[in-house]
Every structure is written in C-alpha cells, then in structure tokens.
Simulated assay, not measured.
Amino acid sequence: MSIVDNGGWPMLGKQRRISGVAVAAAFGTLALLTGCGSTPAAGKHGAKPTGSRATATGSPSSSVSPADLKPIQGQQLRHYLLTADDLGPGYTQTATPDVEKAADPHRYDDMGVSGCPALKELGKHSDEVQFAAKTAAGFTFGADSTLGEELHSDSPSKLSAGLRRLMHAQTSCPTYTMTSGSTPLTVTVRKEDAPGPGPDAYAYTTTLTGPGGSQVLKTAAVRRSNVLVMLVGAPALVDRHIEAAMAKLPAS
C-alpha cells in the first residue's frame, strides 16, 4: 500500500489530507490497479546488499558498476528518508516508515478507474512496476497540508524502466474518472517541469474533484542510482522539499 492513508474517501475542501484514493490517483500505483503496492521482496530479488556489493549505508563500492547494484533493504533504505528535522519547524511525522508489514490486499477492491486505457493496461502488467524494496514516511504541516514520501530500491535499470512506464501511464490521460464504491471522482492531470536534470525525473499535478469540492496534489519523482524517491502532497510543500529529498539519495 502506498504512503499516508486515512483509509477512505479524500477529505475534500478545507482539510487536505491524502487518503488512499488520493494517493492512488497521484501516484498511479498498484494500490488501486491491483490491490497491492511494491513490497520488499528479498526472495524474489535475492536480497540485501552484502559484501563487496555495498557499503554500510547502501552506497556502491568502487568495484561495482551501476548496472550491478543490488536493492537497498530495511534500515539502509530508511536512511534516505526525509525526517521532520530535515523539513524544519512546523512539521509532524504522521506515518511510520515501516511499510514492510503487508496491508489488507482487498481494501481497494471497491475502487476503479475508467476513461484511461493506459492505467488499465498498467494494471495488467503490474509486475513491471513493482520494485524490490520500499519504505515511506508522511508529515503534516499546519492544520491542512500533508506531505508524503516513498522510497523504492531496485537495480538502476529496473527503477528507470518502471518509473518511465508509471509516469507515462499516469500522465497520458488528461482527465479520467475514479470511483470508490458508487461515488465518482474526476481526476485531472497536468505535467509539470521535472524537478531535476536527467531522464529519470518527473512531476505532475493532480486535481481530484468530487461531491465535496476539489483537492490539488503534486507528485515529483526522481531516480538516483538504485533508489527512487516520490513526494506527493500540497504543491508548495513538494516544491519546497524535493531538492532536500534528492540530496539524501545515493550518488548516481
């Protein structure tokens, strides 16, 4: 499951809290499309970096080429998460970075998307955008602003290909409809300037409109080496902290 989750419909209007539906819309991840997100998979990918493959912080040793980098797992990956101290005064952490405990795989069974073939196609090939390891954190700022962060780790080539496919699917439909139960939510997506140089940096804004009003979220995603960072939340907060999130990633 993805980051900060209130377990239900977005709280539209004055309180802009990221719920499960809003996160799925902003990330376009598998929480909605397949009922599961990327999870640590040591058995599938073989594992935590050991020996000459990585240093104690997950950085590659000088003898390892970028193509050979292994996924960073557990506490090593959490090392790259933003903290409330990184963000500054006024921020409170609201979500634990420990997402290795599986969420209910059926909690999104009543959610669906229509009007965006690319997202539906992505759901048919979900394994192509599931990565070996993941961790997350969420923060609130003031009374009604929220910022969430996800980190994923895998080989650089798999992260690059998966992120490219994910971003293409999410931004290929300017407007589509998402439903939770029988309640429709109109989703409008707009591409934004990439938050950094290179091919593996993306940003877009998502406007979710439902019976109670509208909610605007921004998503920024950047890959560095074998770690991918995604920030989602109030556009001003994402813009303010994406550089700090990128600065904590391992060197390319």
Rank of each mutant, 00 (worst) to 15 (best):
D86M: 07
G198A: 06
V4A: 05
T207G: 02
A133L: 00
M230R: 07
D85L: 03
I18C: 10
A247T: 00
L159W: 01
T96K: 10
P235D: 11
H152Y: 12
L30T: 07
P197F: 00
D85S: 11
G35R: 11
L81Y: 05
Y91K: 09
S62V: 05
L151T: 03
E121Q: 15
K14I: 06
Q215T: 13
S63D: 07
D193E: 10
V64W: 00
L249G: 06
G35W: 04
L159E: 01
G20T: 15
S52C: 09
C173A: 11
A236V: 12
S65C: 00
L33F: 06
H106K: 14
K134L: 03
G123C: 12
A47N: 11
A143M: 08
V23D: 14
T188M: 06
M230F: 08
P174V: 01
V216I: 14
A25F: 01
T188R: 15
Y202F: 15
V23R: 06
K191N: 04
V238N: 05
T206E: 03
K48H: 08
A26H: 05
R165A: 12
P66E: 07
E192Q: 13
G43V: 06
G90T: 14
E121Y: 05
T175V: 15
A136M: 10
G58T: 12
S126F: 12
A31E: 08
S2I: 09
T219F: 00
F27W: 08
G35K: 09
